[in-house]
């Protein structure tokens, strides 16, 4: 009995730890009550969830507490963070002029090492912080790679600014040629994506308009980044769009280190942008 209970607990732990990567079947998103605001001292409230239909709350919350970066690069706390059965919600207090970032970034480490002639895989839940304690002292041939999933949205009070888009080099990041809070129906936007700080060709970019529940066709736009890591997206209608960037290929295969080869980190990026009527 005890054994079986432990097994269940372990299993539950696995499921939780795996959520950031296995929720691919369910789309993760954060939607802000407004993305473009005027005046000063505004509050914006945000829902955060993983769901099938965009943007309807039909599955699980994103329970991680997001980080807010102010237009001048300061990190502030979200207010009133509450995690419900199906969605999390929180408020962001905008006290500066310019563009804010709200982000949930999951960073994990995958990899292998050899111990006594046997190749072993790092357990799930390994991070840069706990990597040292998870590798036995007698391990050799340690090979690791980073898994980074980035879920970010942007909110602008006043005129848009670009300071928050300085790349950190971790995971897939957006460098906007067109500001994500300056999007209008019928116009196109150019976004550049960096993988570990470098413009990367061949990333898969999927944009899907919200409101899926009330139409038959998904209306997804599927693009690949060009040699400069750029894609151009033309917004057919005003509304919210889910924009997801992955490395392409078979996701399950990517998740595991190739047998005999070095492990390959898996990176993804997701945002929700608001396209205004022109």
């Amino acid at each position: 009995m005890i054994q079986s209970r432990l097994f269940k607990l372990a299993l539950a732990g696995t499921v939780l730890a795996a959520l950031p990567t296995t929720a691919q079947a369910h789309r993760q998103w954060m939607t802000a009550s407004s993305t473009v605001v005027s005046g000063e001292n505004n509050w914006v409230t945000v829902d955060a969830a993983a769901s099938n239909d965009l943007f309807y709350i039909d599955h699980r919350p994103l329970s991680a507490k997001p980080t807010v970066t102010t237009p001048d690069g300061e990190t502030i706390e979200v207010a009133n963070h509450a995690v419900g059965q199906m969605r999390a919600t929180f408020d962001v207090h905008l006290q500066k002029q310019g563009t804010y970032r709200v982000a949930i970034v999951n960073q994990g480490v995958i990899g292998t090492y050899k111990q006594g002639g046997e190749t072993k895989t790092l357990p799930r839940g390994t991070t840069r912080a706990n990597l040292a304690e998870r590798i036995p002292a007698d391990a050799t041939d340690v090979v690791t790679a980073d898994n980074v999933s980035r879920n970010e949205i942007y909110i602008t009070q006043g005129a848009p600014t670009e300071d928050i888009f300085k790349p950190t080099g971790a995971g897939i990041e957006l460098v906007p040629m067109t500001h994500p809070n300056d999007l209008y129906a019928g116009e196109s936007a150019t976004f550049q994506f960096l993988r570990e700080g470098k413009p990367t060709e061949g990333l898969t970019v999927t944009a899907i308009p919200g409101g899926i529940r009330y139409r038959d066709a998904l209306q997804d736009m599927n693009l690949k980044t060009d040699g400069e890591g750029k894609v151009e997206i033309t917004w057919p209608e005003p509304g919210l769009y889910w924009v997801n960037v992955t490395e392409g290929g078979d996701e399950d295969e990517d998740e595991r280190p190739a047998p005999g080869g070095p492990p390959r980190g898996r990176m993804s990026y997701v945002t929700v942008v608001e396209v205004l009527a022109s």
Binding site: V36, V37, S38, G39, E40, N41, N42
Partner: peptide
């Protein structure tokens, strides 16, 4: 609020 809240 100075009326600016709804200008957008």
């Amino acid at each position: 609020e100075g009326g600016t809240k709804w200008l957008n």
